[in-house]
Amino acid sequence: MTTTITICETCKREGWNAESQSQTDGELLAEAVEAAAQGASDVKTRRHACLMGCNHGCNIAIQAEGKLTYVMGRFEPGSEAAEGIVEYAQKHAASEKGQVPFREWPKAVKGHFVSRIPTLPEPE
């Protein structure tokens, strides 16, 4: 099953300056995640304007049909974070319910979890 990484492209970390920075921190993270996900058949990426986690920028969500959703934030935009996010997304894709054992978490995502959202109940 495919897991989708949704990246907030409007995130601005503390200290972001519109006069000196042509891209938001979210755009930089999105570019890095998209590059890291190239060739990963079990992971898709998409950008979204504002995940409403401004106090936690840069924010992403890891999602798949019928699986737990994870929201993560406080990333430094760059390849190290991006590679960890994609690795976690691949483990999420390979899992039955979206839960990845702590011992398998990439170092780059540890300490970045903001929330876990349960799956929607099956229709009655």
Rank of each mutant, 00 (worst) to 15 (best):
M1S: 05
T2M: 14
I5W: 05
I5K: 08
T6D: 02
I7D: 05
C8M: 01
E9Q: 13
K12P: 03
E14G: 14
A18E: 13
Q21D: 15
T24M: 09
E27M: 14
L29F: 09
L29N: 08
L29E: 11
A30Y: 14
E31K: 14
A32P: 03
A32G: 03
V33T: 04
A36N: 03
A37N: 11
Q38I: 09
G39V: 06
G39P: 09
A40I: 13
S41W: 09
S41F: 06
D42P: 01
D42S: 15
T45Y: 11
R46T: 14
R47K: 15
C54L: 01
H56V: 11
H56D: 13
G57E: 12
I60K: 07
Q63I: 12
A64W: 03
Y70C: 01
F75Q: 02
E76D: 14
G78K: 03
E80H: 10
E83W: 02
G84H: 08
G84D: 00
Q90A: 05
Q90C: 04
K91M: 14
H92L: 12
H92D: 05
E96H: 00
K97D: 15
G98T: 01
Q99F: 02
V100W: 03
V100H: 02
V100K: 01
F102N: 07
W105N: 02
K107T: 13
A108P: 02
K110V: 14
H112I: 09
F113G: 07
F113L: 15
F113I: 15
I117L: 09
P118A: 12
P118S: 10
P118G: 13
L120H: 04
E122G: 01
